[in-house]
Design a protein around this nucleic acid. Structure first.
Length: 461
RNA sequence: GCCCCCAUCGACUAGCGGCCCAGGUCGCCACCCUUUCAAGGUGGUAGCACGGGUUCGAAUCCCGUUGGGGGCACCA
């Protein structure tokens, strides 16, 4: 819609009371907005063809259904759901196509009157022509032909009088002057039914584009067992909406050279007619990579703001942050922005810069057991104590000097110091971290590490 | 069972009869950079499902096989 400067309409198709809840409705709108979809017409936004929730347009559909009944385009069906279900299973067992047998269409007047006299409830079925076929040109599928004999007489009004999706959609497509419908290809087989309804209701069917559904790594339809599959899960998993949007656009579509395309470029380049008709597999690894790209694309101040809730959640800062926390965060962000791919990773990586941490036993085991460590830390403490101008480059200068004097490899020299300061073997850059922590805290941590090694106490230093 | 789709590296894709002994991206591997981890740089790995046609020429067109997927509700 944006590519063609069209009108983007959001319609909520909630005709099934059994599946429709107020929470689900609000969650859906929230998710759509979060990924960056901004409809021109729709619920809460409004528009000249509202309301945009089908549950609020019930009367329209009932009238349309009854009109079709009067015109003889539809008929009453007295079969109960149980009966239909039994017949469907029977047909399947006999390896026949499970279609409605049209028995109520062939009811005699007496039979019909008997049913009515019994007070048997009836649903309304649309009468599909016996022969002929429906043809339409789908933007991604091309010409689609369906023989009418493959289409059963489908229900348009339930026995309680409420409308079904097929009817509601067509009534609204006509009433809302819909020109294009872009939807998942699970609706492909519904399309001929809707075209039939369009013809019966006297409207021009819209143009359809059926895009393939996304599948998991194994080629099976995307489901829970493939990991995160809902917008909510990605949001809560530390993904950026811009990255999700970019990644999703690339599923079933692509360009020769470019991968990272932000919204304006996507709008300019995306062509629905170039979308594949075969399903694409969702690749979490590529999304992760792309999310990292988007994190690095963010100005540092913006990244800091986006990180706030995540750090607050882990108790590293308050929400909203205090002024000093904000200043600290501003210093930390440039140290970690190339090191995280998801927003939630920041808290893990930078924890030691916000609070005191215990040394990780595994890290201690790996880096602190060598014979040179005690002397190394002692010398570091002595040397750094003398440092008055606490800057990372000067810290590095001092520590490097010790490293060279002791003839240690950088890794064996800085590893133990890193563990002493950050508690782990993997951390933001060491010298910058120490500058951020400050002289007192850095020295306190070095002495603390020495103390855990037994022997010389920190007082003696 | 019936109807309908789809098929290029492990994944997402470019390709729309000669420019392709197939290009890009993720992943993976190696190297460089380097205080860890990343990021970044360089290079590499790997594919037109198969079999027939059509054509001077096929990843591109046609047919079949195989393999995947979707649909067949008083759900959407």
């Amino acid at each position: 819609a944006r590519h063609h400067a069209g009108v983007f309409i959001l319609r909520v198709e909630d005709t099934d009371p059994a599946r429709n809840t107020e929470e689900a409705y609000h969650a859906a709108l929230y998710d759509l907005r979060w990924v960056g979809l901004d409809w021109d017409e729709g619920p809460e936004t409004g528009g000249q063809f509202g309301p945009y929730r089908q549950s609020e347009r019930d009367q329209l559909y009932r009238e349309a259904g009854l009109k079709l009944l009067e015109e003889g385009r539809a008929y009453r069906c007295y079969c109960t759901p149980d009966e239909l279900d039994a017949r469907r299973k029977h047909a399947l067992a006999e390896k026949r196509k499970p279609m409605y047998d049209e028995r109520c269409f062939h009811l005699s007047d007496e039979e019909r009157e008997t049913f009515e006299a019994e007070g048997r409830p009836s649903a309304v079925r649309f009468r599909v022509p016996e022969s002929g076929s429906i043809t339409f040109t789908d933007i991604v599928r091309g010409e689609v032909v369906t023989d009418n004999e493959q289409i059963e007489d489908f229900v348009i009004l339930r026995s309680d009088g409420s409308p079904l999706y097929q009817l509601a959609v067509v009534v609204d497509d006509v009433g809302m002057q819909i020109t294009h419908v872009i939807r998942g290809d699970d609706h492909l087989s519904n399309t001929p039914k809707q075209i039939l309804l369009h013809q019966a209701l006297g409207g021009e069917p819209p143009v359809f584009a059926h895009v393939p559904q996304v599948s998991g790594q194994d080629g099976k339809p995307l489901s829970k067992r493939h990991g995160s599959v809902s917008v909510k899960e990605f949001r809560e998993g530390g993904y950026l909406p811009e990255a999700l949007m970019n990644y999703l656009a690339l599923l079933g579509w692509g360009t020769a050279e470019d991968t990272i395309m932000q919204s304006p470029e996507l709008i300019e380049r995306f062509r629905i007619e170039d979308v594949h008709s075969s399903p694409a597999r969702f690749d979490h690894a590529k999304l992760e990579w792309m999310n990292g790209e988007y994190i690095r694309l963010l100005p540092l101040e913006d990244l800091a703001t986006r990180l706030e809730p995540w750090l607050a959640k882990e108790g590293l800062i308050k929400e909203p942050p205090t002024e000093s926390e904000r200043e600290l965060l501003a210093k930390v962000v440039p140290l970690i922005n190339t090191r995280i791919r998801r927003l939630d990773e920041a808290a893990v990586l930078a924890r030691s810069l916000f609070m005191d941490v215990e040394m990780d036993p595994a890290a201690v085991n790996k880096a602190m057991k060598d014979a040179h460590v005690r002397q190394l830390l002692e010398r570091a403490v002595v040397s750094l104590e003398e440092l008055t101008d606490w800057r990372y480059d000067l810290i590095e200068e001092r520590l490097r000097q010790i490293q060279q004097e002791m003839e240690l490899k950088p890794k064996t020299a800085f590893g133990p110091i890193r563990v002493a300061v950050s508690g782990t073997l993997v951390s933001p850059p060491l010298f910058e971290s120490m500058e951020i922590l400050g002289k007192d805290e850095s020295l306190r941590r070095l002495r603390g590490a020495l103390a855990t090694m037994g022997g010389t106490s920190k007082d003696e230093l």
